[in-house]
Design a protein around this nucleic acid. Structure first.
Lengths: 269, 269
DNA sequence: TGGTGGCAGTGGTCTAACCACTCCAGGTTA
DNA sequence: TAACCTGGAGTGGTTAGACCACTGCCACCA
């Protein structure tokens, strides 16, 4: 782990100046300046993944700002997944697997009314390409990992929660095998929300064995480097998955509301 | 604008308890609790896009936490684009056009070494589908907007910066016409980084008229609802765009380093 | 009528102190 | 010797209260 002495500091604009003209939009807020400052340090290589940034008190003093403002900036970057704050240890530049969203489509759906159908459509487009790319570019290690997950799926199709984990890993491995981490991240962003939803209803599923079969078929297409077939199977699989999830949700809804008319009372403080 | 009285507060866990067991990972930090609290309010409809959340002092008091902690949580949500903070006015639930990333691939590239080729590949996959969907689902108003942008492109192909704006708008309109806002957001995330890069080099481009031609072709394919052709033309267009950008960057690099060996000195404070 | 100055409301920043978590060195105990 | 405490140093998390800076609007004045 490199501990970086962030010496050459880009001077932050001063505040508290009595005769300053009105504050404008963009790069005024101190916290944004902190964000940009650290971003620059990362972009130009001064800070690299895994590096530890200086302790807050020290860093704040060097930047000639209060610790609170520094923390606001760090908070921003942490929210975006760029920094990784560990209480009692330090703050580090993210280095693990990337994560684009942070927003989790859950919220976006609440804000903009995204439908499950749209999410599945997006997923279908991304994953079918991912499967094709994986067939073209996948390496032996990927195939091995895929085979293992399929095996696990057969072994756990009577145990939905467990099954779901291997399902997820299978798809993630395909994404990795595609050789395009950007597409992989985009997929992850979408499926995270989808899986999260599915976890609540998967118990009711009765087609997990059939699902395992499809995954096996998918594996064989990829392994034999048949990109066209991989794409098609994936597309078919996801169409099935969509119907399955819709069914499960319908079941869940019925269960919760056993012929009653009221929509379930809302608790208040 | 609804001003919401956030009455029923989900009780936030207490801290500062002398006999508390060690702090664990997830939902401990006060700031995360604030994030989750507000997120819940949005997800269950208590807070809706455009709503104003209570003033910080008041809200903090209601939640029984310090203003600083509340601000940390708000900062997180603001970083993710969920909240919109306006100095001197208030804090609002985002309602404008969504924005997934926030991270801007720029950083991700610095952190994980994404290449421009990968970004173009991702873009190609997304946009070709977007074009096909637009051909299938686009409405008259979209076609009109597309036609206007093409016209503007012809009118400004001698003025690169201006041209680029219409180029961007053209593609954005296609995304809108596709009827899938999720795919649109994903595309926006990628192209934002790409355009940002291109803005620096587009001055050197000498093929803008040809580019306008392709866009016109694309428009005609979409307008005539020929999904297959739309996809193909888009794919071809983006392949061309990629080579063009690579060329421009090569030119730019040569220009900056006129046969000298040094890599340009770096200024220090 | 048309400014325009100022006030009220709200977010932004600062300070200084203290709390809570991690890690590890160094002593204690079995 | 080996396993176990213990406490301190380092670092992020939280609090409190004060003050600064921006926005919008209303009352006053020309």
């Amino acid at each position: 782990m490199r501990y970086v002495h962030v010496t050459m500091l880009i001077s932050l604009a001063r505040r508290n100046m009595a005769m300053s003209e009105p504050n404008h939009n963009h790069e005024t807020h101190l916290t944004m300046q902190v964000v940009n400052h650290i971003r620059r340090l990362i972009e130009n290589g001064t800070l690299r993944p895994g590096d530890k940034i200086p302790p807050e008190r020290e860093f704040a003093q060097k930047l000639k700002i209060s610790r609170a403002s520094l923390r606001a900036g760090i908070g921003h970057l942490a929210a975006m997944g760029v920094l990784n704050v560990r209480h009692g240890v330090g703050t580090f530049v993210a280095d693990g697997p990337p994560a684009l969203g942070g927003v989790s489509l859950d919220i976006l759906r609440a804000l903009h009314g995204y439908t499950t159908a749209q999410m599945f459509e997006a997923r279908r487009i991304l994953e079918s390409h991912l499967a094709a790319l994986a067939a073209e570019r996948g390496r032996e290690e990927h195939f091995t990992a895929l085979a293992e997950e399929v095996t696990e799926m057969y072994a756990t199709f009577h145990e939905p929660q467990e099954y779901l984990i291997h399902d997820m890993r299978f798809h993630r491995t395909i994404a990795e095998a595609s050789g395009n981490p950007i597409l992989a991240v985009l997929m992850e962003t979408i499926t995270a929300a989808l899986y999260d939803e599915r976890r609540k209803t998967v118990e009711r599923s009765r087609d997990l064995k059939q699902s395992a079969e499809v995954h096996r078929e998918l594996y064989r297409a990829i392994r034999s480097r048949n990109a066209r077939e991989a794409r098609e199977v994936m597309e078919r699989h996801l169409h099935m998955a969509e119907s399955a999830q819709v069914n499960e949700q319908a079941l869940a809804k019925e269960e919760k509301r056993p012929a009653a008319k009221k929509k379930s009372a809302r608790a208040s403080a």
